[in-house]
């Protein structure tokens, strides 16, 4: 009868967060030894693994090589068990291709590719569990993995989604909030320079509200940044103490 109340009059969302709050973020770097860089992130129940190889020589057809910078090769996929309903997800379905393209755009903007002309950087991202904000978690995981690989970047790339419900912008939508079909934006930000690496919007949103929603997304990205930065620092600390011994 009555649909789900996404934001109560008291100001709580379905899962108990307030409008601007993120889900709990947990992350680890260097989860695989054989890759050049890797990271695992949990944003609420969305869990993503990212692996980075490179920079290395071009594989396959050399004609794709770029003479002035590195080629960023991305691949996004979802595990069969990542959603409640088990589903075989062939590589290159429409959704995944789109995500792949988005990731590629995002990281081409962030990695200092001109330092590695004629070479290639591979970023593989797999969503192990999907509960909203898959793209954003993928970006965040890939950022950590890239840092783990020691590839120089302009800045961290932090991504978060934001929606708009009952005249209130909501940060970091979970699956239930996404499924409600309201307007939502996904934003990837270089937090130090406040540069936007990617902005995508779904569904209609009146232009009067756009600023508010983007602002909420930017704020969420900066919050993510604080967390990621902490993770990186802890990781570096761990590694250096190991080396020091």
């Amino acid at each position: 009868m009555a649909g789900l109340e996404l934001l109560s009059d008291e100001g709580y969302r379905v899962d108990g967060r307030r409008a601007g709050e993120l889900r709990k973020v947990r992350a680890r770097m260097g989860v695989f030894a054989q890759a050049d860089g890797s990271a695992y992130i949990e944003q609420g129940n969305t869990k993503v693994l990212a692996v980075v190889y490179g920079p290395h020589e071009m594989r396959g057809s050399r004609s794709k090589a770029l003479h002035d910078r590195a080629l960023v090769n991305c691949q996004y996929s979802m595990a069969t068990f990542s959603t409640g309903e088990r589903k075989r997800r062939p590589h290159g379905d429409r959704k995944s291709s789109e995500m792949t393209l988005h990731l590629k755009q995002t990281f081409e903007a962030a990695i200092l590719t001109q330092l590695y002309p004629r070479s290639q950087i591979d970023i593989y991202v797999q969503v192990l569990q999907a509960d909203g904000g898959n793209y954003c978690a993928s970006v965040n995981a890939a950022t950590l993995a890239t840092i783990d690989a020691g590839i120089p970047m302009r800045d961290y790339v932090c991504a978060s989604s934001a929606g708009f419900i009952e005249d209130t912008p909501l940060a970091d939508l979970n699956y239930v909030e996404e499924a409600a079909g309201g307007p939502q934006v996904a934003l990837a930000l270089l937090p130090k320079s406040d540069q936007i690496a990617l902005l995508e919007m779904n569904s209609r949103l009146h232009e009067d509200h756009l600023d508010q929603v983007i602002e909420a997304a930017i704020k969420a990205c900066k919050d993510i940044y604080t967390v990621l930065d902490q993770v990186v620092r802890e990781h570096v600390h761990e590694v250096t103490t190991l080396l020091g011994e």
Partner: peptide, 27 residues
């Protein structure tokens, strides 16, 4: 800072398909 607040997280399961939802508890 938002994420450092102490949330305890629990999940509820229900319906035929297993649905896991986050449920944040606050102080």
């Amino acid at each position: 800072m938002l994420t450092s607040r102490t949330f305890l997280k629990r999940t509820r399961a229900g319906s035929v398909m297993k649905v896991v939802r986050e449920h944040y508890l606050r102080e």
